[in-house]
């Protein structure tokens, strides 16, 4: 028995360390797969226009801000950036402002019609929402909302609202109703209990879902391209000028799209998984 062990043990250790090596190698490869393309985009964005169209490339940035300067001074870019931020902020406010009360109602009350509303929200998932831009373009022309940040924000809110409802629903469900009831017995009315007890506890989560709504709007291309002409958002601007714009403009624009997204994902990383865990139900 003892000999068997002594023969067997080193072999097992070898197998285990080989598996360990493969495991770590897989992680490294996957990290490179995710990060390398982003790195290369930034290499291009931080090179001079000549280097961007030059060949062969070194894969190292020259930290020449020529491309960035060109991008920022290109007609319409700054306005497009501004529009993107404006639309995204409006989307954030609208979707949380409309979605959070609904999420609260779903988490705290049982009432006839609750299931129908849930169905309505879940149903939005089965529809290709950017297509809404087509009929809404007509509606907006009639109501004077065409080519405005607000009109586009409405379409983006349709995209973000289901998420806002489901995420806030899960956030509120995570706050035991006993806490609210305790506040009621301690002299609060419903609104005071909400403001003094529930709101402070869900605030970080609400902020995360707001950032999520912002990102959805920031990234949306199709509806933005359909609904705006003068007041283009950055993605709409880039898509519209793809045929005509030089490479360095595209890459600098791409980098401008990517940077905020990186920050947002970093900001909400703790909530990403909780959100999707619940959004499944």
């Amino acid at each position: 028995m003892s000999t068997a062990v002594s023969v067997d043990a080193p072999h097992k250790v070898e197998v285990r360390s080989a598996a360990r090596f493969l495991f770590i190698a897989a992680i490294v490869v996957l990290c490179i797969w995710v990060l390398l393309p982003i790195y290369l985009l930034f290499v291009n964005a931080l090179s001079s226009p000549q280097e961007v169209s030059g060949f062969p490339k070194t894969g190292l940035p020259s930290f020449d801000f020529g491309s960035v300067r060109f991008f920022l001074s290109f007609a319409g870019v700054l306005q497009a950036l501004g529009n993107s931020v404006l639309v995204a902020v409006l989307t954030m406010v609208l979707s949380i402002g409309i979605g959070a009360p609904a999420g609260y109602a779903l988490s705290r009350f049982d009432f006839p019609g609750k299931e129908s509303f849930r169905m309505l929200v879940v149903m939005t998932r089965a529809f290709p929402l950017p297509l809404l831009a087509l009929p809404l373009a007509v509606l907006f022309i009639r109501t004077g909302l065409d080519d405005t940040a607000f009109g586009l924000a409405i379409v983006h809110t349709v995209l973000a609202l289901p998420f806002a409802v489901l995420i806030t629903f899960s956030l509120f469900s995570g706050i035991p109703i006993e806490l609210e009831e305790a506040a009621w017995t301690l002299g609060c009315n419903r609104w005071q209990a909400f403001r003094k007890v529930v709101l402070p506890l869900v605030m970080p989560g609400i902020a995360a879902s707001a950032v999520f709504a912002f990102t959805i709007s920031w990234n949306e291309v199709f509806a933005a391209a359909v609904l705006t002409i003068q007041n283009r958002t950055l993605p709409a601007f880039l898509v519209q000028s793809l045929n005509v714009s030089p490479l360095h403009l595209k890459f600098a624009g791409g980098a401008a799209l990517v940077i905020p997204a990186l920050i947002f994902i970093f900001a909400v990383r703790r909530y990403l998984f909780a959100m999707w865990g619940i959004a499944n139900r």
């Binding site: 806490l179 305790a182 009621w184 017995t185 009315n189």
Partner: peptide
Amino acid sequence: PRERGIAMVFQNYAVFPHLTVFENIAFG
């Protein structure tokens, strides 16, 4: 509830997590 002159102790205590013990007791 707030107009009934009652106080209640809950099964899961319902101690407000974002407040200190002092502020919890002082809440009402």
